[in-house]
Every structure is written in structure tokens, then in C-alpha cells.
């Protein structure tokens, strides 16, 4: 029983972490709380579903295509909305409010186009294999989800830690002005970050869609709230923090659902969030990223 729950927690936690990674990346680099990240996640999910049902695309290709679609969407949001706001130096809450508008637009569009009902992947598209290790039933799809999530996170992590590009990003996170003086193409990296973050969000959407096999226009809302909890737990803009906090939240949620009460599971995230904000607003790992944009 416990090991089965641990597996569920690992799956859920890895998706939370993947989602929150893009979210926190945008905050770290662009200093914007992008509240459309949940809607982009939803778009990723629908994109994969559409490609699989309409064009009978294999799942791996649909995942890549969905990442491209949501990435482009993220880029579009940055170019059309966030960039003009940056240009006129809008107060820091304004971009956040604009992204709320984007989120509403996207989820209502999805509702108008695909309907409000739950959509599912057609039978046979999700690998149905199952292994039994000890007394744990491991679905093949779960291995895939955890594997893909960790691969994507590892790639991002290495890119930021080890490459010249990552160094430039970290410089922008410290101070966009100084970075630009050093000859870093700040606008270009803002666009790039938006693309990558949204693509990761879209990937998380596909993975959640596969895990629960239920896609709805409003699926972005709960995970956005969880994502907010994760990036506050991990420290805003802290990549490693988001990873650990995402896993942690997955575990906390699954365990409290399994052993306390099923309703409590949803409240856990927000209880934790509240507590952290009161006690340690800089996040669990405390490396303060103070940015009063």
C-alpha cells in the first residue's frame, strides 16, 4: 500500500515539478508571475489530444508537437503582451493582471471549441502495459511520465548551470540592465525563456492528460494554484527549489489523501503555501531572490 502510494506521489510530484519549473523560470528571468501558465498547460494537453485523434500521430510525436504549440503560444504572449508592458515600464502587478486575461481567453476558447465535457485519449493510444514489482503495480505510462519529466528537467538544469546561455540567463535574473550592458541580448533571451517555459508547461499538460486520461478546459486552474504553491515553497525564481518543492507537494498531497482524508489533499498545498509565506517568504531553501521589479 505504502509503496503504491509512493509511486503515485512520484508521478504526480514529477509533473508538478515540471510545471512549476517553467513557472519559476519566467519569474526568475522576466520577473513576471505568469498566471496564463495553467492555460498554456491546458492548451498543450488539447494539442496532443487533437493530434492523436485527428491525425493519428504517435504519442511521442504528439508530445513534441504539443510542446512546440504551447511554446509558440508562450512566445506570442511575451511578444504581444509582456514586451509592450516592459517597454513602458509598467508597475509589476500589471503584467500579472494581463496574464489573467490571457488565461480566461484561452480557457473559454477551449470551452467554445472543444466543449466543457471531459475528453479522453482514444482507446489504445496510451500504452496499457503493467509490471508488478513486489506488490506494486507499475503502469508503463507512469514510467514514461516520470522518465520524460525528469529528462526535461535535467536538460533544463544542465543548460542553466553549464552553458553560456544559462550563464546569460542567470545574469539577467540578477539584473537585466547590467546584463544588457554586458552585451547580452536580453530581449531575445526573454523570448527564449517564454518559449521554453511554456513548452515545459505544455509537456506537463500532456503528461497529466495521459496519467488521468481526462482533459477539460478548466484543468489549468487547479495546477496553476498548485504551481503557485510550489514556487513559493521552493522560493520564487529558484529552479532547484521548484524541483524539490514540486516533488514534496506531490508526496504531501498523495499521502494526505491516502491516510488523512480525500478532501484534505487539496487544502494541503494551500496550507503549506500560507505557512511558508508567513514564516519564510523566501522559500524553503531561503536563497532570497529579492526583486522589486
Amino acid at each position: 500500500m505504502l509503496s503504491q502510494q509512493l509511486l503515485n506521489a512520484l508521478t504526480l510530484g514529477s509533473v508538478y515539478a515540471l510545471f512549476a519549473l517553467g513557472f519559476t523560470l519566467v519569474f526568475g528571468v522576466l520577473a513576471v508571475i505568469n498566471l496564463s501558465h495553467g492555460a498554456v498547460f491546458m492548451v498543450g494537453s488539447y494539442a496532443a489530444l487533437f493530434l492523436v485523434t485527428r491525425f493519428e500521430m504517435p504519442l511521442w510525436l504528439a508530445l513534441l508537437a504539443a510542446m512546440a504549440v504551447s511554446g509558440m503560444l508562450g512566445l506570442l504572449i511575451d511578444v504581444l503582451i509582456l514586451k509592450p508592458l516592459r517597454a513602458r515600464n509598467a508597475p509589476h502587478l500589471i503584467p500579472m493582471i494581463a496574464t489573467i486575461g490571457v488565461a480566461i481567453t484561452l480557457s473559454s476558447s477551449a470551452q467554445g471549441i472543444f466543449g466543457a465535457e471531459i475528453l479522453r485519449f482514444p482507446e489504445g493510444t496510451i500504452p496499457a502495459g503493467e509490471f508488478i514489482i513486489g506488490d506494486v503495480h507499475v503502469r508503463a505510462i507512469e514510467i514514461g511520465i516520470v522518465g520524460i519529466a525528469f529528462t526535461l528537467m535535467a536538460v533544463l538544469f544542465l543548460a542553466i548551470r553549464r552553458t553560456q546561455l544559462g550563464r546569460a540567463l542567470r545574469a539577467i535574473a540578477e539584473s537585466p540592465k547590467a546584463a544588457s550592458l554586458l552585451g547580452i541580448n536580453v530581449e531575445g533571451l526573454f523570448h527564449g525563456t517564454s518559449f521554453v517555459a511554456a513548452a515545459l508547461g505544455g509537456a506537463a499538460g500532456v503528461l497529466i492528460g495521459l496519467d488521468f486520461n481526462a482533459i477539460t478546459p478548466l484543468m489549468g486552474q487547479p495546477i496553476l494554484h498548485k504551481g503557485i504553491a510550489v514556487i513559493i515553497l521552493g522560493g520564487m525564481g529558484d529552479i532547484r527549489g521548484a524541483l524539490i518543492a514540486g516533488m514534496f507537494l506531490g508526496f504531501a498531497e498523495v499521502m494526505s489523501k491516502a491516510y488523512l482524508s480525500s478532501q484534505l489533499g487539496d487544502a494541503v498545498a494551500f496550507g503549506l503555501l500560507f505557512l511558508i509565506l508567513l514564516v519564510r517568504p523566501s522559500g524553503m531553501f531561503g536563497r532570497v531572490l529579492e526583486r522589486k521589479a
Binding site: I81, I94, A98, G101, I104, T105, S107, S108, A116
Partner: peptide, 21 residues
Amino acid sequence: LHEFRGVFNGIVLVLVVLFLP
């Protein structure tokens, strides 16, 4: 506009923030 009514709300919010601060 039926289901698309929400789209209008969202677009209004974005446009106001962008053009009519």
C-alpha cells in the same frame, strides 16, 4: 456568443491593461 463569452472578458482585460492603463 454562447461559450465564447468568456473570451471577450479576457480580451477586454488584456486590451485595457495594454492600451488604457
